[in-house]
Simulated scan of single mutants.
Amino acid sequence: MSVVVTEESWFGRIGGAFKGIIVGVLLTVVSVPLLFWNEGRAVKTAKGLKEGAGAVVSVESDSILPENDGKFVYFTGTANTDETLADKEFGVQFNGIRLKRNAEMFQWVEKKSSKTKKKLGGGTRTETTYDYEKDWESSLVDSSDFHQKGGHTNPESMRFPSMTQEAGTVHVGGYLLSSSLTSQISGDDRLDVELENIDEDIRENIRVKEENGTTVAYFRPGGQYDDMPRIGDIRVSFTAVPNSMVSVMSQQKGETLQPYVTQYDTRLNMLSMGNVAPEQMIATAEAKNAQMTWILRALGSGMMFFGFMMMMKPLSVLADVVPLFGSIVGAGTGFVAFLLAAAGSLITISIAWIFYRPLLGVGLLALAGVALFFLFKRTRSAKKYAADEMGDVQPL
């Protein structure tokens, strides 16, 4: 463990806070088109899904009819392939949709934590603690960036990285699935690793152990693996996606499939695991659209909030000459930033809704007006309180 103490003066913090205004302005400006675009995306996707629900044609996957070319078709069947996917080094073979080699290396990992305290006069004192632990990681950890390098060195390369193989030709009945549809097939099964099938060049450095009902390979460069892992050891397991029952909604083009493009420019190209009705597939897509809409709303509103916070940061830093005053001002600016972001987000979304769906947009504008009213009321109350306090001070 290593502890580093750094201090920043009040003048240094002031300079940083004023520089942060530029970043705050950029965050606020970028959040507006993001929020506006998101509402348009959500509306177009919803309308596109509704159009798709009305246009879909149920067909049999075993018989492809020319009259369905260009139509949005729905069918079920078993996604299967004749290809055998293989990992030659570990001697694993599988006839199915996907084969994954999951590799992890035992490495040093740096954990960083910081505590910052304000000092009288406006400066800050920061204690940064660096802890080092050994753990299995799926990707290389660059130890050259560690704060404390001595005794915490990781290998520069990974002998057996993770890798994924996917069948190039997958059919459901007579239909050939596109790669975008094949990538939606899920449901991993764990596969065993058998020592006698592993390449002879690496076999002597590998030990196979049973874990969670399947066998896993442990590799140690230059020596036989034992029960105590060392830095640089690699753990390898395999999972695979078998031929599976699926439900598909896409546009027929001969025996191939491509995304169905609606008049709202929504691309519909869906696959669900199992025998799922088209109505349920559309409902699932609508739920995902709503979820993504709220995620992007939260992202845009959060960007606007932090933008306003950064623009008002100099006020709290100026008041930090007395830490208590700085905390009070910081809480006040945080509340004001929240109200401004709430109002700004609602106004942006409501304008977008007026553009895309007018009735709902008017209601949102009313909510934005309420947020601005509370902000104005709070500002007036604060001014009145300050004036009353000044009035209570009697001249000498």
Rank of each mutant, 00 (worst) to 15 (best):
E8Q: 10
F11I: 15
K19V: 11
V23E: 09
V23M: 06
G24L: 06
V25T: 09
T28P: 09
V32Q: 07
P33Y: 13
K44A: 06
A46H: 09
K50W: 08
E51D: 13
E60S: 13
E60H: 10
S61V: 03
L65E: 14
P66M: 06
E67R: 09
D69C: 02
F72D: 04
T76F: 02
G77D: 13
T81I: 15
E83I: 12
V92S: 04
Q93K: 08
R101Q: 07
F106K: 12
W108C: 09
K112I: 10
T116S: 05
K117Y: 15
T124A: 03
T124F: 00
T124H: 03
T128P: 00
D142K: 06
S144T: 14
Q148W: 12
K149Q: 12
G151C: 05
V170L: 12
H171P: 11
L181F: 02
S183E: 12
I185Y: 12
E194M: 06
E196C: 03
N197Q: 11
I198D: 05
E204R: 04
N205V: 08
N205D: 10
V216P: 04
F219M: 11
G222Q: 00
P229T: 14
S237I: 09
T239K: 12
A240P: 06
S244M: 11
Q252R: 00
Q258C: 05
V261N: 13
D265K: 10
D265S: 07
R267L: 09
L271W: 13
S272P: 06
G274I: 08
N275A: 04
Q280I: 07
A283L: 12
T284E: 09
A287R: 06
A287S: 12
K288S: 09
L299T: 03
G300A: 01
F306C: 11
F308H: 02
M309K: 15
M312F: 08
M312D: 02
V321Q: 01
V322S: 07
G326W: 11
T333A: 05
S345A: 15
A352T: 03
I354E: 01
I354H: 00
F355S: 15
G361H: 02
A366C: 00
V370C: 04
K377S: 03
R378A: 14
T379R: 01
T379V: 02
R380A: 09
R380T: 03
S381A: 15
A382I: 15
A382T: 13
A386W: 05
D388E: 05
